[in-house]
Simulated assay, not measured.
Amino acid sequence: MIDKRALRATMRATRKRLAGLDAGAAARAADQADALPPGRIIAVYRAIGSELGADFLSLALSRAGRELCLPVVIARDAPMVFRRWSPGEPLELDEAGVPAPFPLAEIIDPDLILAPLLAFDAVGRRLGQGGGYYDRTFAARPNVTRIGFAYAGQEVEHLPVEAHDIRLHGVLTETGYRPFA
C-alpha cells in the first residue's frame, strides 16, 4: 500500500518545482479552454501556493460566454457549495481559508468542476490535498463533469484508490485536454 502522506509531500515538492520552472504554463493551459467538455456553468478555483493558477482560464471561459462560480467551504465535513463569480469580483476567506465569493453571491449548480490536484494518473485518479473537500463534493454531485487542472508533470504512473476517491473525467494541462475512458 502506498503511503498517501508521503506521496502528497513528494508531489507538493514536484508541483512547486514545476511552478518555478514554467511561469507560462497557466496561460498555455487557458489557450486550450475550447477543448473542455461542454458546460454552461463552470466551477473554477482560486489557486493556493503552487497550484496551477486558473486566472487566465477563468478569463478565457468568461470571454467564451461560460458562467463561472467558485467553490465555497461552509463546513469542514460537508460538500462545498458554489457561488456565482466573475473575474475581478472581490472575495473573502471561506471556512477553509480559501478565497471565495461573499455570502450574498447566488448559489448555483455547475455543469463542470475544475479541480486542483497534487497528482493524477492515466485512468483519472486524483490525489488532492487530503481534506476530502472535492471528493465529498463529487460524491454529492455525481452527474457533474469533473476535470483536473494541473501541470502535465504532475502525472504519475499509478495512484492508490480508496472507497471515497472519485475519478476525474479528464485533465487540462499546459499541453492540452485529455479525457479519461
Rank of each mutant, 00 (worst) to 15 (best):
R5D: 12
R5F: 09
A6C: 06
L7Y: 10
A9I: 06
T10M: 15
T10G: 07
M11I: 00
R12F: 08
T14L: 15
K16D: 10
K16S: 08
D22L: 08
A27D: 00
R28H: 02
R28I: 09
D31H: 10
Q32K: 13
Q32F: 15
A33L: 10
D34S: 15
A35N: 08
P38D: 15
R40E: 15
R40T: 13
I41P: 15
I41C: 10
I42R: 03
A43R: 06
V44F: 06
A47T: 02
A47G: 09
I48C: 12
G49W: 02
G49D: 11
E51C: 06
E51K: 05
L52R: 03
L57G: 11
S58M: 02
A60K: 12
A60M: 13
A60S: 12
G65A: 05
L68P: 09
L70I: 09
V72E: 12
V73Q: 06
D77C: 03
A78D: 11
P79I: 08
P79D: 09
P79K: 08
V81T: 12
R84W: 08
R84L: 04
S86D: 09
S86H: 02
G88D: 07
G88F: 07
P90L: 02
E92A: 14
L93S: 14
L93W: 04
E95W: 13
G97V: 05
P99A: 11
F102H: 06
A105Q: 11
D111N: 11
L112Y: 01
A115D: 07
P116N: 05
L117G: 15
L117H: 01
F120K: 01
D121E: 04
A122M: 02
V123F: 09
R126G: 07
R126I: 05
R126N: 04
Q129F: 03
G132Q: 07
Y133D: 12
Y134L: 13
Y134S: 04
Y134H: 08
R136S: 01
R136C: 04
T137V: 04
F138Q: 07
A139P: 14
R141N: 13
T145H: 12
T145N: 08
T145V: 12
G148T: 00
F149K: 07
Q154V: 05
E155M: 12
H158Q: 15
I166K: 09
I166T: 14
I166R: 14
L168W: 01
L168A: 02
V171F: 03
T173I: 00
T173S: 13
Y177S: 00
P179Q: 05
P179A: 11
A181I: 00
